[in-house]
Design a protein around this nucleic acid. Structure first.
Lengths: 144, 144
DNA sequence: TTGCAATTTGTTATGATTACAAATTTACAA
DNA sequence: TTGTAAATTTGTAATCATAACAAATTGCAA
């Protein structure tokens, strides 16, 4: 499916900028920040403004076409994958890993959570720690 | 137990400022921000600096004496309750509700989560939506 | 083509957080 | 008790993500 049609499904009118941002999210599963998206897209679309990135991502999130991750306090990350999954942030290298239900079955239960009569619109399961790669690096350092 | 002894258990040396911040966290279950803590404590400790609040809270979080909530993108909230529980942020009024395992049994499983060989140090379950109170207000408005 | 609404852009403002060095307090040895 | 180094606190200035805003541009219908 074309990216234009994909965002249309969420009620978002396509534009050159919006399609470019969504295409970036879909091809880069790195949970990029506004800064990273801007730096990448600025090359192809030289007139692209950072404000447009902010506006576009806000539009995506409000319409359910993308997810906003508040896993880090420095800045917000975005995710084009809106399927149910959790995230793991490595405090050492900053990488954000996806955790899918196949690896963590509890994720399947998150969509049906209830909390009194409150209206739940979003559920995020955020893990932080040190990733496997960084732990190995630390051990090498310690043994020297 | 005195607050001095409580923070000592986490390896934190007590000071007037640190005790005041921890006491505030323990008596105000509102998940306050740095700003809120500063405004409240500034009255009793007139020389108190906002930098000290930042330093103190960072120290608490690093030593496990308090929890940092990244549930909102505007700013960070803090919680003196370090027992396993989740949070619900109302997007309308900004209030953050505690959700304890008795109301949401799945929370009991969060402490034993595993993700490959990665070293998990922290797990946060964050819900957002519209709280019961705000939903009622909306209905009143709509019916007018 | 014309005109209006939606979108994009660039600049400026805001506000949370951090960096940093000076001032103060604390701990402790002499 | 006194002196001194370390720890802590403080105030200011800098940083940086994000929002506000108005002007410029684009899309589209009449």
């Amino acid at each position: 499916m074309r990216v234009e049609d994909y965002i249309l499904k969420f009620g978002i009118k396509p534009s050159v900028q919006r399609v470019a941002v969504m295409k970036y999210l879909m091809t880069h599963k790195t949970h990029p920040t506004v800064e990273e998206i801007y730096e990448a897209l600025h090359e192809e679309i030289s007139t692209l403004s950072k404000t447009t990135i902010y506006n576009t991502l806000k539009l995506f999130v409000e319409n359910g076409a993308a997810a906003q991750l508040n896993i880090e306090d420095k800045c917000v990350h975005f995710d084009g994958d809106i399927s149910a999954h959790a995230h793991f942030l490595c405090q050492h290298c900053g990488m954000i890993y996806d955790i899918f239900p196949s690896k963590m079955p509890i994720i399947n239960e998150l969509s049906s959570l209830e909390f009194g009569s409150h209206n739940i619109q979003n559920v995020q399961l955020n893990l932080t720690g040190i990733c496997e790669k960084c732990m190995k690096k630390q051990k090498v350092k310690e043994s020297k």
